[in-house]
């Protein structure tokens, strides 16, 4: 499992691990039932402390991305993709509302906003 940690990033290391594993699960690179490296092995491979790695795994477990079998290790949990999509859509909706509010503040017409979105989307 490839994870790359940046020491100069402002993002805490456990969050970097969390996000990278989460992305691998959501994109299907890691499928249901795939075993993750042990906490201690990953800590060694990334040259970070055990506690930091443990925290990332705990957060992933809490969010339902992985599950732990005592004595065996951590595995990728079954993902309900429709629920995840639903959640993401809600976030996108909220973000778009901010965009619309900002556009209205400067009187940007819908057509121009749409053209801007199209341009950025296709970039």
């Amino acid at each position: 499992m490839e994870i790359i940690i940046s020491n100069s990033s402002k993002e805490p290391i456990y969050e970097q691990i969390y996000k990278q594993i989460q992305a691998k699960i959501l994109t299907g690179e890691l499928t249901e039932g795939t075993p993750l490296p042990s906490i201690r092995q990953l800590a060694k491979d990334l040259h970070i402390s055990v506690i930091t790695t443990k925290r990332a795994y705990e957060e992933l477990e809490k969010a339902g991305f992985i599950y732990l079998i005592v004595g065996k290790g951590s595995f990728v949990a079954e993902q309900n993709m429709s629920v995840i999509r639903e959640k993401k859509l809600r976030v996108i909706e909220e973000q778009l509302q901010d965009v619309i509010a900002n556009s209205k503040e400067i009187g940007l017409p819908y057509e121009e906003l749409q053209a801007l979105l199209k341009l950025l989307y296709e970039e």
Binding site: N7, S38, R40, Q41, A43, K44, H47, I48, S49, V50, I51
Partner: peptide, 29 residues
């Protein structure tokens, strides 16, 4: 790196004093 290799085995502990705190910021729990 050797310390970390030692720590891969469950249940092992390391306790050490140092003045080189930059080593600890990454590795020490």
């Amino acid at each position: 790196a050797i310390f970390q290799q030692v720590m891969v085995e469950e249940g092992r502990s390391i306790f050490f004093s140092t003045h080189t705190t930059s080593d600890l910021e990454r590795y020490a729990d």
